[in-house]
């Protein structure tokens, strides 16, 4: 089944307009967002991620081109319609510490309630089920102030869910979270996109997570926007565009960026299994050695086991080492 396109942009130009003078940050952007997909927007600081997000959420006017939302021009939406179509999560400071999780999530119902904001039975059920969906049922009576950062973010996600918007935009939702919460939140968003058939666009600096859980990746750089599935972008070497000119390189094996160093010397490494090899190379890279492709004329390291490391010098001398710490100390010593 073809996924429904909810947002599409043609020849979009974004940026700022001040006293009639437009200062575009990006021109000629074309993209689509589909229901049921999690899209991650990656880009270096200052590439215009927030400007793009704000433009799509209509918090900032576009300069030229068009954005179509659910088949209708974005600019033709009024505030009420927008509040039922786009739900946003920002990094803004809120004053919600004195609200319970329940009360906070109920705020998301405002686009659907009347003048006094009274909640119907259906509204309350929707709130209940959204809190359950983000896994905060046991905390629904707790104050927001009593939650961890990750739980707060989940409550905000629940707030966006009760808004019942087909499109959810999140500006760096994992910025202040620890590693475990980051994975949890991204995983949660991935599930929500799929199970509730929503289109979710999030901006993030967490490249590894984005590559694992996103259906689509948007790379926004000074040169423009590149869209695609994570695997295509990685294997077509598109990821290197992200930090062009910086002293980092993308390791397509590991799916992450690492410092790019031109190694003067090389060591030949073999290992009994992949994770040993990975960490063995990691250790020699840190010591300033590259990985040699042949054993000839190089120091050799054979990783039989994490506690059994065979070191073979250039002249053939052999030493057995019992940990990576011993190994790194030994190589450092030798180099002196």
């Amino acid at each position: 089944m073809e996924k429904e396109i909810i947002v599409s942009a043609q020849h979009l130009s974004i940026g700022y307009r001040y006293k009639g003078v437009s200062t575009p940050i990006h021109e000629n952007l074309d993209f689509t967002l589909k229901c049921g997909e999690l899209t991650s927007l990656l880009g270096p600081n200052g590439a215009g991620k927030s400007t793009l997000m704000r433009t799509i959420s209509h918090l900032q006017p576009l300069l030229s081109g068009s954005i179509t939302l659910s088949g209708k021009e974005l600019s033709s939406y009024n505030e009420k319609e927008l509040s039922r179509t786009i739900g946003i999560i920002l990094t803004d400071k809120t004053q919600t510490g004195g609200l319970t999780v329940n009360e906070l999530v109920a705020l998301g119902r405002q686009p659907h309630t009347g003048f006094f904001g009274r909640l119907s039975k259906q509204d309350k059920e929707r709130i209940e089920s959204s809190i359950q969906a983000v896994g905060l049922s046991s905390k629904k009576g707790s104050y927001m102030a009593e939650l961890s950062d990750g739980e707060r973010q989940k409550a905000m996600i629940a707030k966006t869910l009760v808004q019942e918007c087909p499109l959810i935009l999140l500006d760096e939702p994992t910025a202040f979270l620890d590693a475990a919460s980051r994975i949890e939140i991204t995983q949660l968003l991935h599930e929500i996109a799929k199970e509730e058939n929503r289109a979710i666009l999030l901006s993030t600096h967490d490249i590894e997570q984005a590559l694992v859980l996103s259906d689509q990746i948007w790379l926004l750089t000074q040169q423009g926007l590149t869209c695609g599935t994570p695997e295509d972008l990685v294997l077509n070497l598109q990821m290197d565009k992200l930090f062009e000119g910086k002293n980092v390189q993308f390791d397509k094996q590991r799916g992450s960026f690492s410092p790019s160093i031109n190694f003067q010397k090389e060591i030949f490494v073999t290992a009994s299994e992949d994770s040993l090899l990975h960490w063995g190379v990691n250790a020699i890279n840190r010591l300033g050695f590259g990985q040699a492709s042949t054993p000839q004329g190089h120091i050799q390291i054979h990783l039989m086991d994490k506690n059994q490391i065979l070191y073979k010098g250039e002249k053939g001398e052999e030493t057995t080492l019992s940990s990576f710490e011993e190994m790194t100390n030994f190589i450092t010593q030798k180099e002196k």
């Binding site: 505030e79 009420k80 739900g87 946003i88 809120t94 004053q95 919600t96 904001g117």
Partner: peptide, 22 residues
């Protein structure tokens, strides 16, 4: 009569706007 927008404003202006508050 302004209780509804007041509650939305607890989230800050941009969130309140996203909840349909003028």
């Amino acid at each position: 009569l302004l209780i509804k927008p007041l509650n939305a404003l607890l989230l800050g202006e941009r969130y309140a706007q996203n909840l349909g508050i003028h």
